[in-house]
Write a protein that binds this DNA or RNA. Sequence first.
DNA 1: ACTTGTTTAGATCCCC
DNA 2: GGGGATCTAAACAAGT
Length: 256
Amino acid sequence: MPRPSRESYGDQKPPYSYISLTAMAIWSSPERMLPLSEIYRFITDRFPYYRRNTQRWQNSLRHNLSFNDCFVKVPRRPDRPGKGAYWTLHPQAFDMFENGSLLRRRKRFKLQKGEKDNLNAELAALASFNRAFLARQAGAVPPPPAMPTASLYTPPMCAQLSPEPAELPEVAAMTMLPRERPRRAFTIDALLEPDSPRLSPSPPHPVVTVQPMPRLELSMPSPYVLVAQRYHAELLQAAAHALRPCYLPPPPLPVA
DNA sequence: ACTTGTTTAGATCCCC
DNA sequence: GGGGATCTAAACAAGT
């Protein structure tokens, strides 16, 4: 399929890849994770170009989410039912943009086979936990299985959890499309700089300030779970609260 | 029925 | 020119 010329973004199309746009959307959320529909909304809110031909670019975006290891699908919390999972960025993936630039990736982010297997196993276990949680809420007998992995809850990892979500950079006014490719670093935080009224007339050019990319500790174990950890912790709290009378300890199973 | 997610395929763009 | 990154299209399965 013919790809639009690189120059064609000049009139409308932003110079950012779908990966970049998705990363922006995810990064803009308080929990650093969003369902697909919210990612769509982020993009259409800020880039009028994407209000057209939605089927085309949304298909591409979904393809990117699935295809690229830099995006991690986190099962929904049982107390937040809805369609589709949440999507988050693999923390190590922040390193894949040159100098934090969203314009072009330095290198495709690829998990090692083992890493990917572990990740999938943990997320599958989490999804399984959620199903059991829901079943139990619905009155089913079997208690939720043990939480997915020790790695998520071992003290060193728990100690890294911040009590509150990381500060949210306000969503930037990004409704105006650049006429030419910016020549300076284009970081997620720069894009998400302090808000301005979203529906007010856009400035003639986007205001882009250069800020250092947040450097993440790449040495931390299971780095993808920074978001999932908080998610799990909340899940446990919710479970303990909602099911206190019967959740701890689980009733003994009837002996057949 | 519609949305979400996965996979495959083929094309262009861009850096080396 | 080769190879990686990106874009687009399409088919299909699964979930809501």
